[in-house]
Nucleic acid binder design. Structure first.
Lengths: 140, 140
DNA sequence: GCTTGACCTTCCAGTGACTGGAAGCCCTAA
DNA sequence: TTAGGGCTTCCAGTCACTGGAAGGTCAAGC
């Protein structure tokens, strides 16, 4: 199967699939004309990757999950551990965003929002009226 | 004032300040020895940037906010509009993450997490038992 | 005067996970 | 034979930094 068909079935863009090959996440064979030739197994991997990425697992986590996926002797506890870490990460991000939202709405509500120049939002950015909102650097 | 002091006061890393100069967000003068010499105005800009970035505004948004900051004739409505857009963006991200969290906990709870290989999480990644969770591509 | 160490400079490369584009080969149908 | 679409590789760009190398500057202590 050519890359175009693999893309449609896996829901991954063509460019992304080629990138995944570059970084060794999938290794399709090549046909005589040099085209990539995706086997059913390759397709499984691609679909797996699409799903895992959409669930917010990083490429490296995907790599780990893939190897667990293909390890017949894996312990489900290993997979569950990764997932739990991911949930904690998601929780942290949600908390950060909620805190951020609070500051932004406070500022927005304090601003009359007309054509006069006085603006509490700008004043806060300049002077830090609202106490420092210290965010994690990776608000990813 | 040298870059080290400016870094301490503005809470921005030295590297970041140099980067901000590169992209034209701040333009400190130079002393005779070639060192950057930050004026009080430069410091104000840096503090403004630190705060705006920590509130999740992108560099380009910061640039726009800075120019509003320095525009004596700005309308507060302009600033409020940017802020409201940012709140909507934050809301979208929170919703995405909450939906993601739900899928992950469902999976995690379904997994017994022992040393046997059966694992509903992996099975889902492979087969998509839980319906497709379609995320925005920028889960930033 | 010399050394040490902190601080400063520039420049280049790398991060994550793609994405866009150019140049060119391959395949099929009309 | 030509047109088109699909495929290939390679290079560069995204965002917002961050790390590191190589080297200049400054102040303090001996």
């Amino acid at each position: 199967m050519n890359i175009g068909a693999a893309s449609e079935i896996s829901l991954l863009p063509v460019k992304t699939i080629r990138y995944y090959e570059d970084i060794g996440l999938v290794r399709p064979l090549r046909s005589g004309n040099g085209y990539r030739d995706f086997s059913d197994t390759d397709l499984e991997r691609l679909k797996f990757l699409q799903r895992a990425r959409s669930l917010g697992f990083s490429i490296e986590e995907c790599r780990e999950l893939l190897s667990l996926y293909e390890d017949r002797n894996r312990a489900s506890a290993d997979v569950k551990a990764i997932t739990k870490l991911k949930i904690q990460e998601v929780d942290r991000k949600i908390a950060e965003l909620q805190s951020l939202r609070k500051v932004l709405t406070t500022l927005s509500e304090a601003c009359h929002g007309d054509d006069r120049p006085e603006c509490p939002i700008i004043e806060d950015l300049a002077g830090g009226l609202v106490q420092q909102f210290d965010m994690d650097r990776d608000l990813t």
